[in-house]
Design a protein around this nucleic acid. Sequence first.
DNA 1: CTTGGAAAGTCAACAAGGCTGACATAAACC
DNA 2: GGTTTATGTCAGCCTTGTTGACTTTCCAAG
Lengths: 169, 169
Amino acid sequence: MAEGTGAPGGGESLLFLTDEQLRKGIEAMFFAYRAFTADPDRILEGMDYGRAHHRAIHFIHRCPGTTVNNLLSILGVTKQSLNRVLRTLIEDGLVESRVGRQDKRERHLVLTEKGAALERELSDAQRARMRAAYRAAGPAAVQGFRQVLEAMMDPQLRRQYQTLKEAGS
Amino acid sequence: MAEGTGAPGGGESLLFLTDEQLRKGIEAMFFAYRAFTADPDRILEGMDYGRAHHRAIHFIHRCPGTTVNNLLSILGVTKQSLNRVLRTLIEDGLVESRVGRQDKRERHLVLTEKGAALERELSDAQRARMRAAYRAAGPAAVQGFRQVLEAMMDPQLRRQYQTLKEAGS
DNA sequence: CTTGGAAAGTCAACAAGGCTGACATAAACC
DNA sequence: GGTTTATGTCAGCCTTGTTGACTTTCCAAG
């Protein structure tokens, strides 16, 4: 509310902050997220897995040896919810659960070769779409894309994202 | 698309298309979408409504008088799924369903004053977050943000988004 | 050594919100 | 009159989230 000038020509225009522009951004997020999840969803349907399995597999791949508690805080779900997903992945031999060495209460999660193969299939599909979008939009747009997404996160989520971001290479 | 160099320094660097960069974009989408839906979810919890109700309310507000079929194709769910949501909104007096004049088979959906009030509360919260993110990132970043999101959509989704985008103002 | 508490697993029950299939009705169209 | 279209509805199923209660394991402090 009370957006200030709105008048064009005043040094740096604030026209990009109008409700109209914000609404377009909101709807773009809605439609883009649908597209974003469409490819992995398509691959997983038919297998007994869903989006929750994809997320677990993704982050276990990203953080090999992570504990259940750590995974819980990344995914933002309850342990009961994660456990159901994790159990099927372990039973099916996609994920291995190793008792911790120092702290034997902890379970360290890693993908098996079979799990890594599925991860590759899923992330290849998701990356292909992302790559096409990046290429079409160009490097400057990509930088802006990431800036806005990061600015949208709550500080706590942003910290988790940053930690992951730095952890990669 | 003239892939060309890949080598740094060669005119336009393609380093933004590495798997590493794509992964960061994917994880940014994941965390940002959580934040994106968090505020409306918080408002709706406690009321008997959920994210599905929010989506219906949003698009009925955007397209007043839209038919059920049109709403279905925007939301991308089955009529049974939408009907469950719509029925409660109509029963609770947030949405009005008017029999069509020309074609009496159609129902035209509009928000009541009560529905419009909830819509305002929800979209105010969502816009506030968006506005903060836009302001922090700046106009150039916002342009890139929208470009990448649009490029990510399937052609059919993009057409729906474009139609809505132009319809506004 | 005992005990408190953290980490993990499990069971039961429930809710939201997707889905399919089948069927009913009314209106429009041919 | 017969077919198609738009809508609504019933029943049942699945995934994925939730809470609450309880157990087991095991580190660590007293």
